[in-house]
């Protein structure tokens, strides 16, 4: 493909992916490369399959929603759909942030060390360092450094969502999946999260599902447009929004449907 792709190789290679729930097919034969250390946005109207794709990359759809899959999702040369994947290890490698900020019951500190502790980090000094660095990454450290022992539910919605992102960063992931991470937030909190993503873009491979095409245009380098479980087109975000190849893409990004 383009020279840009050569210097920025695919982190996740999706080949012929099908996802179905019982008799309902949500994703049909999707093939898509997700660029390393960049933000890729998945956009499309309801029932386009974008959330199913996201939840299948870390096998949550298979475990929680009872999804059946075919095809391949290759991550670092391994197919995560081969049925032998260690899910816990996969999810440390591929973190996820959900649509509504969802702290776990417990303190801010408890939330941040939950994943690392499960991964076997025991020393207090290591945990403290991890907490500080991940909170700094998520631009939350200054706001909460004096009250790490307080309940995470006491934070505002925007802070809670940044806590959830910090919690994911604390896992030391390579990929971060975001499922409409700003859908419940006010515009200012949304901007703070987008700003944070811009600062961290090169550290992780990001995949963001969003219903807000403007957000996709603001934060992502590449965008994939999906419709009814199929990929319509994928490309550099600037190109896809200004000179889409497919008429349906043009209609969607210009707000004529969906």
């Amino acid at each position: 493909m383009t020279e840009r792709d050569a210097e920025n190789p695919a982190k996740i290679a999706i080949r012929g992916l099908e996802v179905s729930y019982g008799s309902k097919r949500a994703v049909e034969g999707l093939t898509l490369d997700i660029a390393s250390n960049a933000v890729t946005a998945l956009i499309g109207p309801a029932a386009s399959g974008k959330t199913s794709i996201l939840r299948t990359i870390n096998l949550l759809s298979v475990e929680v929603d009872g999804a059946a899959t075919r095809g391949e999702i290759c991550l670092g040369g391994r197919n995560v759909l081969d049925g032998h994947t260690d899910r816990a290890a996969l999810r440390r490698q591929v973190g996820m942030v959900f649509a509504t900020p969802q702290p776990l019951p417990g303190s801010i500190f408890d939330n941040l060390v939950y994943g690392p502790r499960l991964a076997g980090v025991r020393r207090r000094a290591d945990l403290d360092a991890l907490v500080e660095s991940s909170l700094r990454s998520a631009e939350l450290w200054d706001e909460v450094k004096d009250r790490l022992g307080r309940s995470a539910f006491a934070l505002s919605g925007g802070q809670q969502q940044r806590l959830c992102i910090a919690r994911t960063i604390a896992l030391g992931p390579e990929v971060i999946l975001l499922d409409e991470p700003c859908s419940g937030l006010d515009p200012i909190s949304t901007l703070r999260i987008e700003e944070m993503m811009r600062l961290l873009t090169s550290r992780f491979t990001w995949v963001i599902v969003t219903n807000n095409t403007k957000q996709a245009a603001r934060v992502s380098q590449r965008t994939a447009f999906l419709l009814q479980g199929e990929l319509v087109e994928e490309g550099p975000t600037a190109e896809l929004f200004t000179t889409p190849r497919d008429g349906r893409t043009a209609d969607y990004v210009e707000g004529r449907f969906g």
Partner: peptide, 25 residues
């Protein structure tokens, strides 16, 4: 809430760890 379970799984917990550390408490 179902979300507790999804969050815990997404943070690298196994099902039983999720039940033991999050759901039952």
């Amino acid at each position: 809430p179902a979300a507790y379970r999804e969050v815990s799984l997404s943070l690298g917990a196994s099902k039983w760890q999720t039940v033991r550390k999050i759901v039952v408490p």
